[in-house]
């Protein structure tokens, strides 16, 4: 699971979605690998405005990356982003992967497992949406 993906993951429990505690999920016992991916500066430049920076900072610290800028780097017409900043983001967001570990919701405390790089978000029956809620409308 890539770090970019974690910026787009919340708790799967419907009732958690309305609370800010369900995003981002929190890592435990994460095992990381680096895997080379083609660097495309324009792609990273366009991804950057879409990132929830505060959530990314939380995730980065949990995984041991402490060099992320406090403020999201922003490009302007006169001052495009420093290529090194883009390269560092590329490395963090796309090349760094969590292969084993857990993701925990701070609201309901549910634990989602990551195994061989694949996170499993299927809910046990008692947390899944009650049948009545989606059949009665």
């Amino acid at each position: 699971m890539k770090i970019l993906t974690t910026n787009y993951i919340s708790c799967a429990v419907k009732a958690c979605k309305s609370t800010s505690l369900s995003f981002p999920l929190h890592f435990q016992d994460a095992v990381l690998v680096q895997e080379e991916v083609d660097f495309k500066p324009e792609f990273i430049t366009n991804i950057l405005p879409r990132i929830e920076w505060e959530a990314l900072k939380i995730t980065a610290v949990e995984l041991g990356f402490t060099t992320l800028p406090a403020q999201k780097p922003e490009a302007t017409e006169e001052a495009p982003l420093d290529p090194q900043v883009l390269k560092d983001l590329h490395t963090l967001l796309l090349e760094t992967q969590v292969t084993e570990g857990k993701l925990v919701c701070a609201n309901c405390k549910h634990v989602y497992n990551i195994h061989q790089g694949i996170a499993n978000f299927l809910l046990p029956n008692h947390l899944a949406l009650p049948l009545i809620m989606i059949t009665n409308f």
């Binding site: 890539k2 787009y8 919340s10 895997e35 879409r50 996170a119 978000f121 299927l122 989606i134």
Partner: peptide
């Protein structure tokens, strides 16, 4: 998903469309 995950350039995970693990309004 295990077959999809071998593709490397994108990402994949196990989830149910009725209970998606994604924040609203981001995509």
């Amino acid at each position: 998903v295990q077959i999809a995950h071998d593709l490397k350039t994108q990402d994949s995970l196990i989830a149910d469309t009725l209970e998606l693990p994604h924040p609203d309004s981001r995509f």
